[in-house]
Amino acid sequence: MDKVIIAKDLSLSYSSSETIINKADFSVNSGSFVFITGASGSGKSTLLKSLFGALKPKQGSLVVGGVELKGVSRSKLNFLRRHIGIVFQDYKLVKEWTIDKNIMLPLLINGYVKNVASNQVDKLLKHVRLNHQSGKFPLELSGGEQQRAAMARALAHNPVLILADEPTGNLDEYSSQLIWNLLEGANSQLNTTVIVVTHNIPKTLNVDYKHFHIEYGSIHEVC
């Protein structure tokens, strides 16, 4: 099976004095569902940032989607990011844009024609049950609705990899369940690799998953 992520001897840090992830070795198969857990400040989000190139490896090698992220050029990083969907706990929606335009963003970046992108947005809004909120700005929506819009944006361009940083951290039970269903659907129906950083793995999940736990800078797989 193809490996979508390969980390060898990977060390991550924000400064030269403190290492967050220390000499980690792990890999993720294409089409798998992965949870990354750990205590607050253990380096879960740091690891996720490194997977989309927001933090470069201090040492070792990190290959995502065939792209070596150590010393990666800006153009290669942009190319990689066009094939990744990212979901954040704080949604990261552009506040001055409507949710439609936010969802359309990865489609336009990937070169979709505007009316094709617009049709795709309509489908996605229905898919995340936000079609009644079309044309609204993010701040006019509830937290759960904003996260669903962010999910739609992450799914819009059929990415090979979805990275989600505590996607249900601020949400009620109903919205959380919807988000898990969407992630599950992307993984099972589209064979998208999903990596989720979370404190709690949901008990209702209907997919096989891999679980990595981070402790004291080390990553180990929980069986």
């Binding site: 800006r74 153009s75 190319f79 094939h83 990212i86 990261k92 929606l93 552009v94 001055e96 970046i109």
Partner: peptide
């Protein structure tokens, strides 16, 4: 800055 960062997360080139 926020909008440019978000666009960057999805791989938008600098000109875009």
């Amino acid at each position: 800055n926020e909008r440019m960062s978000i666009m960057g997360l999805f791989g938008a080139a600098l000109w875009l």
